[in-house]
């Protein structure tokens, strides 16, 4: 066969065997690859896709959950703050009341003390006045009796009076 091989189909004839062989081989290859290579590969890709999808879903869910928790925490914090505020207010009010009470009590006590001290002073004064009065009376009686007892000169009289007054001072 020296025909020009560059020309399509020249010298080759009809290769029925090649056609059958190519078809059979391709179908066999297709079947084998489907069973041993592409099938498992597709399976794992599918699996990965599902895995990723489920991971995304889980992440979404946990995000929502976290948001909810955050909201809850915020609300709780707010409530706690409010409660603390009211507690402080109450304590302040209570303190004010107590302060007022204590001040009022102290004022009343001091008033009472002052009153009693004044009373005591007055009593003392009265007592002292009474005692003085008694003494003066006794002295006058004594002086008078002395004067009557002796006739004395003016000088002696003065001396005597001074003497008695001195005595009276010493007695007291």
């Amino acid at each position: 066969m020296t025909t020009n091989a560059y020309v399509l189909g020249a010298g080759a004839g009809f290769n029925g065997g090649d056609i059958l062989f190519q078809l059979a081989m391709f179908i066999i290859l297709l079947a084998l690859l489907k069973k041993y290579a592409w099938g498992p590969l597709m399976g794992i890709m599918q699996q990965r896709e599902e895995h990723i999808a489920s991971e995304i879903e889980a992440a979404e869910k946990s995000r929502v959950e976290a948001n909810q928790l955050l909201e809850e925490t915020r609300a709780e914090l707010k409530a706690a703050r409010l409660e603390a505020q009211t507690t402080i207010e109450n304590a302040k009010k209570l303190g004010e009341e107590q302060k007022a009470e204590i001040v009022a009590a102290a004022r009343a006590e001091s008033e009472r003390l002052k009153e009693s001290a004044k009373l005591e002073i007055a009593q003392e004064k009265d007592q002292a006045m009474a005692a003085l009065r008694e003494q003066v009376a006794a002295l006058s009686v004594m002086i008078a009796s002395k004067v009557i007892e002796k006739e004395l000169s003016a000088a002696d009289q003065e001396q005597l009076i001074n003497e008695y007054i001195k005595e009276a001072g010493e007695e007291r």
Partner: peptide, 21 residues
């Protein structure tokens, strides 16, 4: 039926299929 086989094609088809596989 007379089937004509080009043995070169047969060989190369087999080789190609084998390599891919």
């Amino acid at each position: 039926v007379t089937l004509t086989f080009n043995l070169s094609n047969i060989l190369m088809i087999t080789v190609a299929s084998l390599i891919v596989f």
